[in-house]
């Protein structure tokens, strides 16, 4: 067994990232507390995190560890209680108004009164892109997620996996440099999930986007990521940041290799160590 360089001090800054690209997300001493009737809930505590351009970063941890909250904070869907956070060099609020990121939710959140094509072009409509270009982009991105030919269908006429792919096309169609994905495949069965994971990887290497991906599946995180952020609950904090050095074009067979299993093991150890905090 490999000794694990676990960071026992949650406040310690993470190792400097190996990437040489621009810093897309930078969090310093980030704190987020929800005020509830039962007293404050410490959703995030002392988070330090750097995400470089072109990274595929996964947040993994048990429920309640704040992984979704951290993603939502990056998207300016939650307000910070303390610390600093920059997205593309500006505040999350400004980044949201700049339309710097595409967000994929746990559920497809397609509008049932719009056809698949018009769901995909919804952000373009809001941004004032002309109609002809909207249709062109819808075709391009629906093609990219293998949904060509389903433009005129309505969301409820498609399977769950197809709906989620349409929502990914919607997040991509205005070409944001950053893609934020909150357990996008959590509700799908494993076969569909494997398939979509492969497609997502292809998409990532084709487009060179930065992806931040929330999951609670260890194999999914290891398979997809260049960097795995292991989180732990109460208070939500980062307990390990694990870089992976697999090549960009991966396939599902990779999951049987010793290198893969070693990383998966380290993630599992990290999760276990985080959990023992509670006991």
């Amino acid at each position: 067994m490999t000794p694990l360089p676990l960071q026992s001090e949650p406040t310690a800054p993470p190792e400097p990232a190996a990437g040489d690209g621009r810093r897309v997300v930078q969090a310093r001493d980030l704190t987020l507390t929800f005020q509830t009737a039962d007293g404050p809930v410490y959703a995030l505590s002392n988070i330090d995190l750097d995400i470089e351009q072109g990274d595929f970063v996964s947040f993994i941890g048990p429920s309640g560890c704040g992984k979704t909250t951290l993603l939502r904070a990056i998207a300016d869907l939650e307000h910070l209680s303390g610390g600093t956070l920059t997205v593309n060099g500006v505040s999350p609020h400004q980044a949201r108004l700049n339309r710097d990121y595409g967000y994929v939710f746990q559920a497809p959140a397609l509008y049932p009164w719009r056809s698949i094509e018009r769901n995909v072009t919804l952000p373009l409509e809001i941004m004032g892109v002309p109609r002809a270009e909207r249709r062109e982009r819808a075709r391009t991105y629906l093609d990219l997620v293998n949904l060509a030919g389903f433009e005129k269908k309505f969301p409820w006429q498609l399977s769950g996996g197809m709906q989620q792919r349409a929502s990914i096309a919607r997040a991509l169609c205005f070409d944001p440099a950053l893609l934020l994905m909150d357990e996008p495949f959590g509700a799908l069965d494993e076969i569909v999930r494997d398939h979509l994971n492969e497609q997502l990887l292809q998409l990532w290497s084709k487009t060179g986007k930065t992806v931040v991906f929330v999951t609670h599946s260890i194999p999914e995180a290891v398979f997809l990521s260049t960097k795995i952020v292991v989180m732990s609950p109460r208070p939500g904090r980062i307990i390990d940041v694990i870089p992976t050095d697999f090549p960009r074009d991966r396939n599902l067979d990779m999951r049987e290799t010793p290198a893969f299993l070693e990383v998966a093991h380290r993630v599992r150890e990290g999760l276990r160590a985080g959990h023992s905090y509670d006991d």
Partner: peptide, 9 residues
């Protein structure tokens, strides 16, 4: 659905 709109500014 609302947060989606919010994310588009």
């Amino acid at each position: 659905e609302r947060e989606l709109m919010r994310s588009y500014g």
